[in-house]
């Protein structure tokens, strides 16, 4: 089907529009309505969510927590190829590779740390992983604050502790992960 051309009439600006004044009054009306609406019924009309005291509920299928998959023998599936840390736009994945005792595995991550607070939950690490070793699953990142009423709270070092707590190390990430049946090198298996 050939493309059709539709000529739209330019909207005529009448005298009163051109004088600008009535339009200003209309605009003032809109903003005043918003203003007084926000003052009269803040709970209904103000949409701000005061993070972190208030949190927007996440949808049920939200996937906000990383997990590292494991092999059949319970070892980490990751081979420390650094694809995820390379693609990560937030630079939040730190991996140190080491030689594995088993020559068929050869390389494994000695340390694998994800900074949960730096992560922007883009999921590119999952896309980049050639080994189906990292996935994102149900859950959310940890809070950037430590609540004042918990034992963990310490006014002086509170934020520092919260920061440290956000570094999810390999074993913690593996706890959430389970066995993946994906075959390395593509979809086909022998």
């Amino acid at each position: 089907m050939a493309a059709q051309t539709v000529t739209l009439e330019r909207q005529k600006r009448g005298f009163w529009v051109q004088t600008y004044l009535p339009e200003i009054f209309k605009g003032m009306g809109v903003t005043l309505k918003h203003f007084f609406g926000a003052i009269a019924k803040p709970s209904e009309n103000i949409v701000t969510v005061s993070y972190p005291e208030e949190q927007r509920p996440y949808p049920a299928r939200y996937r906000g927590r990383h997990r590292l998959m494991v092999r059949e023998d319970g070892q980490v599936r990751c081979v420390a190829c650094m694809c995820c840390s390379t693609i990560c736009p937030a630079n939040c994945i730190h991996i140190e590779a080491a030689e594995h005792d088993d020559p068929s595995v050869e390389k494994y991550p000695e340390t694998f740390v994800i900074d949960q607070l730096r992560c922007i939950v883009c999921g590119l690490c999952v896309e980049a992983c050639p080994c189906d070793a990292i996935r994102m699953d149900t859950g959310v990142h940890c809070s950037p604050f430590i609540a004042e009423d918990t034992d963990d709270f310490n006014a002086l070092e509170g934020e520092l502790r919260a920061r440290e707590r956000a570094f999810y190390a390999r074993d913690l990430l593996m706890e959430a992960g389970d066995h993946s049946r994906a075959v390395q090198g593509g979809r086909r298996s022998f």
Binding site: H34, F35, I39, N45, I46, V47, T48, S50
Partner: peptide, 13 residues
């Protein structure tokens, strides 16, 4: 504050 209310925000608090 006023701009915040106009824009349905809370503004500095």
């Amino acid at each position: 504050k006023q701009s915040a209310y106009i824009q349905r925000r809370k503004g500095p608090n």
